[in-house]
């Protein structure tokens, strides 16, 4: 469904912009329906850049990203809207992804309005309260601002908000790194349940092998912007071939 073809993203740095840094270097992969792909790597390896490229928040320097065979670079306005509805992202820092000057009532209703999911205000209300209930979120959150709720609740809202769109693919960019261990378990459990129930494809970006192993079936190990190894969870974990992967796995197995 989503395919990266030799995607490279480079930045100019240095005083005169003469130095080229490759954040993502010739990465190719594809995810199919109902797949669970994990992108594993240390911080700074370029895995979050891949997530942002897929969301078209960044443009690739080279290569193409295709959705159902169509390059996202050449999409028309309506195609892009459709793409955004179907490919969604969960960010790392739930307490900073919401507009600090907007109450949750408006934040939550955004996707419903942008994609005309409801034909009347009553229907909008119904859709939202159904989802709030499904996610165990009290309606009193409507009148709160993002800085007034806990990270766990904020991440729940983030997941709920994109789930209202019924996306085909969810990219989760370190969704539990900023959360407490106990809350992390809740969010992962929730995410898993949601994926299974709605047959959503997941691209899970994380530095945490335990978490990736719990969430994914296939893993790509990334180092310095390059895919150094990929394979099933068991292969990577029990029979790592690449030296870096072995180092990573060993250091986490202790």
């Amino acid at each position: 469904m989503l395919e990266f073809k030799n995607v490279t993203k480079q930045y100019r740095s240095g005083m005169f912009g003469t130095h080229l840094t490759k954040a993502v270097d010739d990465v190719s992969f594809c995810v199919g329906e109902n797949e669970r792909l994990g992108l594993l790597g240390e911080s700074g390896c370029g895995k979050s850049t891949i997530a942002q490229l897929a969301m078209k928040l960044l443009k690739p320097s080279k290569g193409s990203i295709e959705y159902n065979g169509k390059n996202i670079k050449h999409m028309s306005r309506s195609e892009m809207k459709n793409y955004r509805k179907n490919v969604q992202i969960i960010f790392q820092n739930p307490q900073q992804v919401f507009n600090p000057r907007m109450k949750f009532r408006e934040t939550i209703s955004e996707p419903v309005r942008i994609y005309n999911l409801a034909s009347s205000p009553e229907e909008e209300k119904k859709i939202i309260s159904e989802h709030m209930e499904m996610f165990g979120l009290p309606e009193e959150l409507f009148d709160r601002y993002p800085q007034e709720i806990s990270g766990g609740q904020a991440q729940r809202i983030a997941i709920m908000r994109i789930l209202m769109l019924k996306p085909e693919i969810i990219i989760a960019d370190e969704p539990t790194t900023m959360l407490d261990v106990s809350v992390q378990a809740q969010i992962l459990e929730l995410l898993k349940e949601v994926m299974d129930k709605n047959n959503i494809t997941l691209i899970f970006v994380s530095h945490d092998l335990d978490v990736v192993r719990a969430m994914c079936k296939r893993i790509m190990v990334i180092k310095d912007g390059q895919v150094v190894e990929q394979g099933s969870v068991d292969d990577i974990f029990d029979r790592p071939e690449n030296e870096y992967t072995r180092m990573l796995v060993d250091s986490l197995k202790e």
């Binding site: 806990s150 766990g152 261990v181 106990s182 992390q184 378990a185 809740q186 459990e189 978490v211 719990a214």
Partner: peptide, 19 residues
Amino acid sequence: RGLINALPQNGFHAIKGFS
């Protein structure tokens, strides 16, 4: 006990509800 069960090596069993 809930905190310990929520650890990855114990299978991410979450405590229900919020603080």
